[in-house]
């Protein structure tokens, strides 16, 4: 089987400071991988490099494109990378304000990706948007409301609908449940799990919340000071951590 995403030797530095270095892994279709580590461990830098928001200094990010098979997205032209960004890739930001157009209605937010790839039938766009709002548990009567009238949890769900409407194959998530209260987090996690399974999505989830990865991620990558210190099955890494840092991380979590 061809990996959906094959990452090799990614390195990104900020002057003399290392953002992340020597990161490599394969992600297969349908797999959800969690990237954990403390603040400043390089996990967000890595995610930005993989999603094409930052250009890595070294390394390749090979994505199995629909049309042409495996392509290195680092050396791909910007129009091609942008096209991926609005079709096969999706990016869910921690802060919904970064991922939504706050002055555009919920329906317009969901419809944007469709229109970006050429949808020109208002009725169909609206129908699809309605369907997707339903899937993320936003009622149809809110379709013309702007996101600023929504709660934090609703905004995050809207962001997810906006991203998944184009039927992406790979979703990048940066702390998707950060900033939400616990009950809202649970609902979002449940929703994400269902969508991942139904759509056969692959996902990379950056988070510092080990409970989130235990519920969502199949695999785990633990980062410290810009380097990957441990990888493996999520429950294995959490229950039988091998690296000193992972042991510290796991033992630092408060038991509820």
């Amino acid at each position: 089987m061809t990996p959906l995403l094959s990452v090799q030797g990614i390195r990104k530095t900020y002057g003399f400071r290392i953002g992340c270095t020597d990161v490599g892994f394969d992600l297969y279709p349908g797999e959800v991988m969690g990237i954990v580590g403390e603040s400043g461990s390089g996990k967000s830098t890595l995610l930005s490099c993989l999603a094409g928001h930052l250009t890595p200094d070294q390394g390749s990010v090979v994505f199995d494109t629909r049309a042409e098979g495996p392509r290195d997205t680092v050396t791909m032209s910007e129009p091609e990378r942008r096209m991926l960004g609005r079709t096969d890739w999706a990016f869910v930001h921690q802060n919904p304000r970064d991922g939504l157009r706050m002055s555009v209605s919920a329906g317009g937010n969901v419809g944007e990706r469709l229109m970006a790839v050429g949808a020109r039938h208002y009725g169909q766009i609206r129908e699809t948007a309605t369907d997707w709002l339903g899937r993320v548990e936003i009622t149809e009567d809110r379709i013309d409301d702007r996101p600023r009238a929504f709660s934090g949890g609703m905004q995050q769900r809207l962001q997810i609908a906006r991203n998944l409407v184009s039927g992406p194959r790979l979703v990048f998530m940066d702390e998707p449940t950060g900033g939400l209260d616990v009950s809202v987090q649970a609902r979002l996690l449940d929703l994400l799990r269902g969508l991942v399974r139904e759509m056969g999505l692959s996902a990379l989830i950056v988070t510092h919340d080990l409970a989130v990865v235990r519920l969502l991620a199949h695999r785990l990558m633990v980062m410290k000071s810009g380097r990957v210190v441990e990888t493996g099955l999520t429950d294995q890494v959490l229950d039988d951590p091998q690296h000193p840092y992972t042991q510290l991380l796991v033992s630092s979590v408060l038991q509820v």
Partner: peptide
């Protein structure tokens, strides 16, 4: 049991 399950290495 956990080793068979793959939970322990």
């Amino acid at each position: 049991m956990r080793m068979i399950w793959g939970n322990y290495l």
